[in-house]
């Protein structure tokens, strides 16, 4: 190789700080952390907390892209900090901010209560008209039936899609990408019978119709869930439902 890769010794992180007992407006603190090619952003944050400033607050748990708790903005882009190499953001300084769209409690920690409520609003669980007794065995499913919803079941509730969605940030009543994708996950599940109940919530303006298909939710999703696609498919089925009920008002109960 004629060109040698220059690996920096250190990299600067500009970290969003908000300590409500100290300041009424957030500020940025700069930290110089050692650079390692194998380090993720989360490793650098952990270094800051362990060695530079123990008061820095942020959420993380699994550090393997499964728990969905370490989502933040890195240079303005929503990412899982445990799955984003420092190297990909060189030369720095790297700006770390909390996800947009959620009120900040402290530093990099947002209040996610709104999303939690929305998950239950859309009834993101299996609904059966009648549970069959345990003795009757499992609800069987073919591989093709599994394929129908598997993609949407990959969601880890990391909320990167909410942060990327301008509609949600402008109108927080909007149910938003992940919750609608998860509603779709259960609608498309052959064992589920709750599509109608969910439609009542989702066919409102704050449900699917608020979406203008910016498409950024799908772009930032670390799990390939494609919430934008889920919402568009939902619009199609809601439309067919609507015209069916216009044509046959009696059959829809």
């Amino acid at each position: 190789m004629s060109e040698t890769l220059t690996v920096p010794e250190t990299v600067i992180l500009e970290v969003f700080r908000y300590r409500p007992e100290v300041e009424s407006e957030p500020t940025f603190d700069s930290f110089e952390v050692p650079f390692h090619p194998e380090w993720m952003i989360l490793d650098a944050l952990n270094y800051i907390k362990d060695d530079l400033d123990g008061s820095l607050s942020y959420r993380w748990a699994c550090r393997m892209g499964v728990c969905g708790s370490c989502g933040m903005l890195a240079n303005g882009q929503p990412v899982l900090t445990c799955a984003t190499y420092l190297e990909s953001l060189l030369p720095g300084p790297i700006r770390i901010e909390p996800l947009e769209g959620f009120p900040v409690i402290r530093d990099l920690v947002g209040d996610i209560g709104d999303f939690m409520n929305k998950l239950s609003d859309v009834k993101a669980w299996l609904i059966r008209d009648e549970e069959k007794p345990v003795e009757d065995g499992e609800y069987l499913q073919t591989p093709s039936q599994l394929d129908d919803y598997k993609q949407y079941s990959m969601c880890i509730n990391c909320m990167l899609c909410y942060s990327a969605c301008p509609v949600y940030r402008l109108e927080p009543e909007f149910i938003g990408p992940a919750a609608i994708a998860l509603a779709q996950r259960y609608n498309l599940d052959s064992r589920d019978e709750g599509a109608e109940e969910r439609m009542d919530v989702l066919s409102q303006h704050d449900g699917i119709w608020g979406c203008t298909l910016v498409g950024e939710c799908t772009e930032v999703c670390p799990k390939g869930v494609d919430p934008a696609g889920a919402i568009q498919r939902y619009k199609v089925s809601a439309t067919m439902d609507y015209f069916k009920s216009l044509l046959m008002p009696r059959s829809s109960s």
């Binding site: 009424s24 407006e25 947009e100 009120p103 900040v104 409690i105 301008p166 940030r169 402008l170």
Partner: peptide, 9 residues
């Protein structure tokens, strides 16, 4: 008592 910071769009 929490004092949230809300960023304006």
């Amino acid at each position: 008592y929490p004092r949230w910071y809300r960023k304006r769009v």
